[in-house]
Amino acid sequence: MVQPLPVRLRETPSQTAGPYVHIGLIPHQAGFDIFETNFSNVLAGPETKGERVRIEGRVFDGAGALVRDAFIEIWQANSAGRYNHPADRQEGKPLDEGFRGWGRTGSDFETGLWFFETVKPGPVDGRKGHRPMAPHINLWIAARGINIGLQTRLYFADEAQANAEDPVLNLVERGPLRESLLAKREERDGQAVYVFDIHLQGPNETVFFDV
């Protein structure tokens, strides 16, 4: 006999967000209005510091079909590379009051396009003993048919040097796998747009993380 370990609770099992996730989390897209304040896909206000960027993309299934009912959230540091969270105590990186660093949206029911209006994040310290992480945005994807939310990261293709030293990207084999995490920069009417398509399955499958 051995002494029993203390009992640990077990995580609640995940279930799919289903086809009507919009009702609860983005009701205006479901076709009605109910709350006084809604969470949205616009992270940057007029006072937010940093380079304004739009990030956008589409989600594809294993047959290459558009996923028009995907639900996406992003979580990112501010332009100085600091998260708006008490556990972030990086020195010399100011908080940007009013920038929460989080937003949510759904794919357009017709075009499948999703987008966020935000600022480009700065680099964040890596784990102890590791190099700083290249600028990145954390994504979380839920939808009908997705049993447990998928985590991935969006990196910026024009940050080649920082990306080459990023401790997470360097866990991913060079080539198409690593490419799946890079958003391509475009200029559109003077605005910087980063395009990031997500492939749930198939030859171009996006790298997903067990975080």
């Binding site: 294993g62 079909a65 979580w75 556990a87 990086q90 310290d125 992480m133 399955q201 067990d210």
Partner: peptide, 25 residues
Amino acid sequence: TSVLRSPRRAMLSLQSSLSEVTGPT
């Protein structure tokens, strides 16, 4: 619906960095 919406590759395990231990409030 899970048939075409499920990744086929193994997920890549990440140890926690600030990107994982922080979140929106």
